[in-house]
Computed example of a mutant assay.
Amino acid sequence: MTALNFVDELLGWRTLEQRTVQRLGRPYAPNCADADNCDIADYIYASHRVGRILRPGQTMGASFEALLLDHLFGEISRLDPNRKWLARPGRVISDFAQYAHLGVLEEQIKANVVLRTEFGREYAIKPDIAIGVEVAAAQPLLHAVVSVKWSMRSDRVQNVRPEGALLLRHRRGRAPHFVVVTAEPLPSRIAAIAMTTGEVDAVYHVMFDEMAEAVRQVGTREQKERWFELVTQGRVRDYAALPVTLTST
């Protein structure tokens, strides 16, 4: 699995603000990276001759999620056609058998100001992508939850661990897979999610091979050590392995 045959249509150079251009001496930065720290992304984009210039303000999160949903659903359906797969964005987990009781709890919270004040909407989890399996005469089972992160800024990862913890804590039955899929180029930011205590199965990178080569070529010593740790401990894996993982269990 490479960037060229999966996410190539999303890769591009974003224009920088004039003050950033003056500070850094460059007009563009890879759209998956910070302008201040993008050596790894620069290497990947240059190696694959990415030349597309993005419109100012263009964001990739929604596009990445839609592309990933289509690709992942197609792959798991092909690999395991015997199960009736469902793949939906933004579907509440109470629609699935293991979490149906949370729908009842949510109604009680809505109707009671004390409960609403105490718990808020903690239980109303809407994953980026929910993958289910239809079951005859019953609610579908939640097979996997996929958190989609084109990049990993600090303000975009704070919901991942609590979401994983809630999925584990409140299930009635088998726990679903909980994975993160990303194009983030900084090993340190990936580690902020990947090196958990069990909330996340693993982080799957859509440019895994490209990352490995870029880190080897232009990464700092710390980045090389962190990437090695993440890979050898199975905390970061190639996205190509995800459909197989999901259909083998």
Rank of each mutant, 00 (worst) to 15 (best):
R237P: 07
Q58E: 14
E229Q: 10
A111C: 00
V114L: 04
K84H: 09
L79P: 00
G90L: 00
G12S: 06
H143W: 11
V218T: 01
P176E: 08
G219D: 09
H143Y: 06
V179M: 05
V203T: 14
W227R: 07
R52T: 14
A175E: 06
A191F: 05
K224T: 02
N112R: 00
T249K: 14
I53Y: 12
N31K: 11
R83G: 08
L68N: 07
V231M: 01
V160H: 06
S94Y: 02
L86M: 13
A240H: 14
L24C: 07
F178P: 07
A29G: 08
P243K: 15
A212E: 06
C38D: 04
H170V: 01
A138P: 04
M195D: 15
W85L: 05
D36C: 10
Y239A: 14
Q98F: 01
H101K: 02
R237Q: 05
R83N: 12
F228C: 06
R116F: 01
F64C: 12
A138H: 10
D42S: 04
P176S: 03
A130M: 08
G51H: 10
L86T: 10
V50H: 13
S154M: 15
V21C: 07
L16G: 08
R156S: 12
P140R: 04
R174M: 13
V113D: 01
A29V: 12
D8E: 14
D201Y: 08
E17L: 13
V133K: 06
Y99S: 11
A191S: 15
F6N: 13
L79F: 02
I125E: 10
T182L: 09
M60Q: 15
I190M: 15
V160R: 12
V50Y: 12
Q22P: 00
E213Q: 07
E225K: 07
A130H: 04
V135M: 15
D95K: 05
A214N: 06
R52G: 02
